[in-house]
Computed example of a mutant assay.
Amino acid sequence: MKKESTTKFSKICTLLLAGAMTVLTFAGCGTSSGSASSPSPSVSASAEASASPSASEAAGLYYGSAATAESVVKDAAGKGKVGNWGLGNEYEIQALLSKYGLPTTFLSQAFDMNGFDDDTIALASAMTYNELGLVKNSYEGGYSYGDKVKTIDMNEEGVAMLEDNIFTTSAFAKANPNTVTAFLYASLKGWEYAVANPEEAAEICYKYGSSVSADHQAYMADEVEKLVTTDTKGSAVSKIGNMDEAAMQQTLDLAKKYIKLDDSVAASKLQSLTLDDIRDTSYWAAASASTDGKFGAPEKTDISIQLKWLPDAQFMGYYVALDKGYYKDVGLNVTIVPGGGDISETTAVNSGQVDFGVTWVSNLIAANAGGMSLTEVAQIFQRSGLVLVYKING
């Protein structure tokens, strides 16, 4: 059932990186120590021996449709075929491997799904709103696997870490409370409209310079909607942007366990961080409680927000707010700055190049451990978008 790779697919995947693959750059600390490697032969033999007989069928490549997550993880890890990009969301993979008593090593996965397609990687990382769609769907650039693949969900496995949030510096928030609250109010309004109208939101993103096809943009919008409106437990979210205490604490706890910083001072600070060191709920509370968006005159009216990646539906709420005039309605002139390449959103915000940014909670945690003073003011994605995808027989 292996499909023929396409040049277009590789190009699309390389462009995307799901917005989540920006290299972590932190002030005052070393980078995370390398973790992408293959298990030793002795580890492989042990893991394979512990895997359930139903983990894989006779061919040894793919898995039975009824195989448990544990059996698939153990089998793939035993063969050294669990993949991840290793640029910030490997912590969830490491937590999953630890859950099943396995070493936390993994294959370095490229920014496409070619390794998954050619069976180099049996259990590949994919974002639900990006790579998974390209694997399953038959539109331009897709592999058309359809229902011949299954996934292991980080939320269901209890190792989810929160992703896209809105953050700024503590100093900016304190000096510009009206601006921060107004920006949040308009952004949340944009997200509310986007998740209620994902098809239109996808079209708006496409208009602002999408890096993907219209079909994939539409797919992305539908999947991002689920991340915004459903929490890690599968329950409906009552208010967009809420900073769920339990989910944030789990993210912080996993970050402390799996983020490795070379600088000893940064590593020590990481272990001492609390939620109060990385977020302030007061601005979101004021913005979400308002019915008219009036918070007093903004202290700064020309502001900017740095995205993690190129324009696409991962960020549809901001583009909707811009397109619908929600930012202008609260007296703000907002510039949305695309990410990509070597741009670090945490560094851009910390240095004052931009006023707000979109990052993962783990990125913000590591940045603050390294000497920055960033604060999350809203949590847009309420659950992890990371899954491990594998092929099934049949």
Rank of each mutant, 00 (worst) to 15 (best):
G133N: 00
A51K: 08
K3V: 15
N89R: 15
S65K: 15
G64R: 14
M372H: 06
T274A: 09
E157G: 01
E92M: 15
V228N: 05
A287N: 04
D355W: 01
V180C: 09
M21P: 03
I336C: 04
K294R: 11
N114S: 14
K99T: 07
G352N: 10
S138W: 00
A366Y: 05
G101Y: 12
D342E: 10
S98M: 04
E90Q: 15
S40Q: 10
W309S: 12
Q314E: 13
A367E: 08
G28N: 08
D215R: 00
P198C: 06
A285Q: 14
D164H: 13
R279S: 13
R383V: 11
K308G: 15
T168M: 08
V237M: 14
K148E: 14
G394R: 09
I303G: 01
G209V: 02
I343K: 03
I93H: 06
Y208H: 14
G341I: 11
S65V: 13
V212W: 01
A266T: 09
T105E: 06
G158T: 11
V354A: 04
G133T: 13
Y219D: 04
C29W: 03
T230V: 15
G340M: 06
S235Y: 10
A36C: 09
W309Y: 09
Q249M: 08
K239Q: 12
N137P: 01
G371W: 05
K99M: 11
A27I: 13
G78T: 11
L275H: 02
T229Y: 12
D118P: 09
I278E: 04
M1I: 01
F172M: 02
V349P: 11
Y327N: 07
A67C: 04
L310P: 01
S35L: 06
V149I: 02
S288C: 10
S384A: 15
I343F: 03
H216L: 14
S5M: 12
K2N: 13
L386N: 14
V320H: 08
N165P: 02
G34K: 12
E90F: 05
A348W: 01
Y318L: 14
L252S: 00
M113D: 05
D153H: 08
E192I: 00
N155K: 01
F167T: 02
I240E: 00
S351E: 14
F111K: 10
T14R: 11
K74V: 02
S38L: 13
A214N: 06
N197T: 04
L332E: 06
N393K: 12
G60W: 09
I12L: 15
A378F: 01
F106Y: 15
W85K: 08
Y326W: 08
G371A: 10
